[in-house]
Structure formats: structure tokens, C-alpha cells
Simulated assay, not measured.
Amino acid sequence: MEGTYMNMNVSVLLVNQDFCYAATHSLKYFYTATSGIPHFPEFVTEGLLDGLPITYYDSNIRRETPRQDWMAETEKYWDEQTQISIKTEKSFKGNIAVAQQRLNQSGGVHSFQRMYGCEWNDVTGATDGFNQYGYDGEDWLTLDLKNRRYIAPVEKAAITKYKWDHQKGLIERDINYLTQDCIDWLKIYLVFGEKTLKRTVLPSVSLLQKSPSSPVTCHATGFYPRSVMVFWRRDGEQVYEDVEHGEVLPNEDGTFQNSVHLTVKLEDLDSRRYECVVQLPGVQEDFVTRLENTNQAAEGSGSSGLIIGAVVGVLLLVAIVCGVVIWKKKKDAKKGFAPANSEY
């Protein structure tokens, strides 16, 4: 990786840094190529640091861009990253065509994805890495770090597995990135983004219900950091039955949102026995919103909300590419991203 980062003494940069604001940190990159979706980018990449977007590229803007001010580099640096992403875009589009051929598919909406990155625990020092490929929302290939081989959960991917397993140089390159380079850059980015990553943003909490017979949703949004506890209580005790937990999802401003759904009897809607609780790391006070009828404001130490007749005005930034669910996915000589295997 060239530019400012490479000009810094990494060992000096990381000395005595306080990473105690989280135990496990992650650096992840997502690549998604799609076909058959009009007016939508055919290729999109995004880099995430502890769930916070830090880089972005798509085939419409054709420019690798920083998503955080502290990720800004020289123009030359981002020009180099753009050229690499353009090459990767071409490779991923080709991979869709190959997968369609092997699966005897023609036309329709298809997606090919890669998720890779690393994790580091700042308390134990433990690290982990992952490199996964998916097609049409299902697992396609996964790198087995321990046994230094790829795993193909579907028969149609066996051809690629066999090819990549016999290119030991490629596997060693990937493993070296995931276990060494990725960890190094993760630590560097944590230093650069320390002020942003250490901040605390309090949530806004609302209770939502489509109809008296539908589940009640406790929706917390606008909070940071990502790790938050959202749950229902009845008479002061946490409720586990008839509760469905949603995923923590990102907002466009770098904050997060989460929802928990409670199925409750109609006669209990106005009993004042239920309350939604939101707990944020580093904040001693819980955000409590009591379940009441549609005509009364909710009480609590957090932001108040109302049960309303329809879920309106709640914008969910879901990890979806135009209806295709993102399946559960820095450096080479010149950049902070792992190179993609082009020979498919």
C-alpha cells in the first residue's frame, strides 16, 4: 500500500495505543457483482471497519472513494485503488457468466459475491481471517485457513476448488494477507479512526405496530457503537418467548439500528406490564420505553415513542442489492485490499 500509510512507522504508531473501547475489532470487504438488474450498478465494493463504512466503489461512479474523512489519501493513492477495482469488476462480471454456464442458466437476476477480512481481539491478541464466495445468495467457496484449502459446499463449485487448491501460491498469498497484512492495516485504521470509533451516539427508540393483532416492534436507531442490547421486559423480567430479534443494520450516517419484535395478547397492550429496554456500552442509564395504547405517549429514560397503526417513516438500510440478500461473507504491493482470484 502506497501513500501516507506506508510512510508511517507502524511500530511507533501502535505503541501505547488504547484499544479498550472494544474487545474484538474487524476489517471486512464486500464485493458484489449482479446481472439482470436494470439501472443498478453491476459491481459494488464496500470496506467496513468495526461495521463502519470506510471505502466505496461502484461501476456507475467508477471511482474508489473514502467514506470517512480520516481515510482520505492523496489523489494518486485513490487513482491506484480505482484501477484495481476496475480490474476486479471485470473479473467478477466474468465469474457470473461462468457460474451461469455451469448451472445451465440463461438470463434472470444473478449475483456473485465475495466477503473477506480479519478480526483481532485487543485483549487476548487472538486473530482470525475469512475469505468466502457466494452465488445467488448461497455459499460457493470458503477458504479453510487451517488446512490451507478451499471448501466447495456445492458440486458446481468443485471445478474452481480443484483449480485454486492446486495453485498453492495463490492460497499462501490469501492466507498471508488474512493473517498478517489485514491485521496490520486493521490496527492502523483503528488509530486513524480512534476519535470516530470511540464516540457514543444515543439511540432514538420507537414502538411500532401495524395492527392490534400484529407483533409490536421496538425499533432503536441512530446509535453508536454497533454493540447494543435491545430486549423486551415484562414486570421487570426479560421476555424470551414470543420474541424475534432482528439484525443490527447500518444507517447511512455511520450509526446503526436494530429491532426486536414482541407477539403480545391484545388485552396486554394497555397493561403497562411490557417495556422495551435498550442498553448501550459505556452508558450506565438504560433506555426504557413502556408499551401503552395508541393514544398515550410512552414513558422512559430514552426517547419516547408511540404505537402507531402502520410502520411509516422507518428507513432501513438493509444489506440488500436490489432485492438480492447479501449472503452471510490491504494490502498487496499497492493497496489495503486483498487481491481477488481472477482465474475462475
Rank of each mutant, 00 (worst) to 15 (best):
L280H: 01
I188E: 02
E89C: 11
S227M: 05
A97M: 10
Y31D: 14
D270C: 11
R234M: 10
K210Q: 11
Q132V: 11
V98S: 08
F92P: 00
V201I: 14
S111T: 15
Y5L: 15
K331G: 10
K93W: 06
E73K: 12
S35Q: 15
F337G: 08
L202I: 07
L145W: 06
D242P: 01
N95A: 15
E299Q: 12
K76S: 10
E80Y: 07
S59Q: 13
V324A: 07
T82D: 04
L145A: 03
Y57E: 09
C322P: 00
S85G: 06
N341M: 13
Q100K: 15
I171G: 11
N121P: 01
S211V: 02
K168N: 04
S206E: 02
E343A: 10
N176D: 07
I308A: 08
K161Y: 04
A297N: 11
N9D: 15
A319L: 08
S206H: 05
R102H: 13
D18A: 11
G3F: 08
S214P: 00
C322W: 06
E194P: 01
L315V: 13
G282V: 10
L306Y: 04
Q83N: 13
D144S: 02
K90W: 04
F337R: 11
Y77M: 13
F92C: 14
L27V: 11
S26Q: 14
N258A: 05
V98L: 13
K328Y: 02
A338G: 05
L269H: 02
P212S: 03
W185L: 13
F40R: 15
P339F: 04
K335A: 11
R233T: 04
W185V: 09
S106W: 03
D286Y: 12
I159Q: 09
F192D: 01
L145P: 02
K87V: 13
C276D: 02
S211Y: 00
L266C: 05
L306F: 07
V228Q: 04
Q167S: 11
T160M: 11
T34F: 07
E155Y: 09
N293C: 02
S304N: 10
K161I: 06
A72T: 12
T4P: 12
T4K: 15
V12L: 15
I188V: 15
S271R: 08
A23Y: 14
K328G: 02
W327C: 05
Y224G: 03
E285G: 01
M6I: 14
E275P: 01
C118L: 07
D181H: 11
Y116M: 08
D174K: 12
L208V: 03
Y31W: 09
E194W: 06
E2G: 15
W185A: 04
G305M: 03
D235R: 12
W78H: 10
R199P: 03
R226A: 03
K161L: 09
L170Q: 14
K330P: 13
R62C: 14
